[in-house]
Amino acid sequence: MTLASIQTPMAQEIKQPTAPVLVLRYLRRNKGLAFGLAILLALTLFTVIGLITIDPKKAYPLSAAFKQPPSLKYPFGTDFFGRDLLAAMVLGTWQTAFIGLLAGGIGTLVGIILGFTSAYFGGWVDSAIRTICQILTPVPVLLIQVVVAGSLDKRDVTIVTMAMIVAMLAWMGPTLVIRSQVLTMKERQFVAVAKLSGVSDMGIIMKEILPNLLPFIAAAFVAQVFMAVFASLYLAVLGLGPLREPLLGNIIWSAQSQGAFFNGWWWWPLEPAFAMILILGALALVNMGLDELANPRVRRTE
């Protein structure tokens, strides 16, 4: 009796659950990932509904009453410059997410390309890329970003340039992670088989290695988004953000410059701080959850 004839009747009996059901089942086991995704979903809903219903002009100075504590009319209060903080929070959350996604995306993409080149081709290319990563790692990224952002004209700093500044030094982490994963992947049998069957380098990278790396790439991307949000917060808090925009870090910076707590305007810095905790906390949870997905062996070792 051949193997195929045993398996066929079995396969007919078992009803394969659909993909969404499988995803939901997995999320029930991986609670951290589920919780993180739920927070991100809630934040997205807050931003999307906000962007549709609220006039974005209210997020800029002189559009509302000054220094009002939270009330029915202004649920999040207003600030010293006459901004409606509800509108500012909606727009600021969106801008923060945008910087994170753009910078994280660019960093991960560059990391994938460099990591693959380095690991797959090896030789002097590998040692050059690795040495550059090793030298740049101890240099505090934020400080270099301070130099770059400080060298720009303050009027030129927009949300997009901010994302570029953050992305510029956000590729070393993904490069090293993906390089080491490709190195282990290269030694696997299925790659050797593909090579012996005459598949080209590009074919092996695209069809054999890349699909197997997807969970790692997803984890690296989320980690990079986390770093980018963090970096943009620090730059903005130092006064290097696009000063006109209600980016969350900028709201904190302006509240701090006006001595918000000394003057009793507690809601002003507190709201962006809470939003930041939600964003970073959710990203950290998703990142840990994806690690568990990518690395089943470390699952629940604790």
Binding site: L233, Y234, V237, P269, L270, M276, L280, G281
Partner: peptide
């Protein structure tokens, strides 16, 4: 993972 500046606020 809570940034020190947020903790400070």
């Amino acid at each position: 993972g809570v940034p020190p500046i947020i903790m400070g606020i």
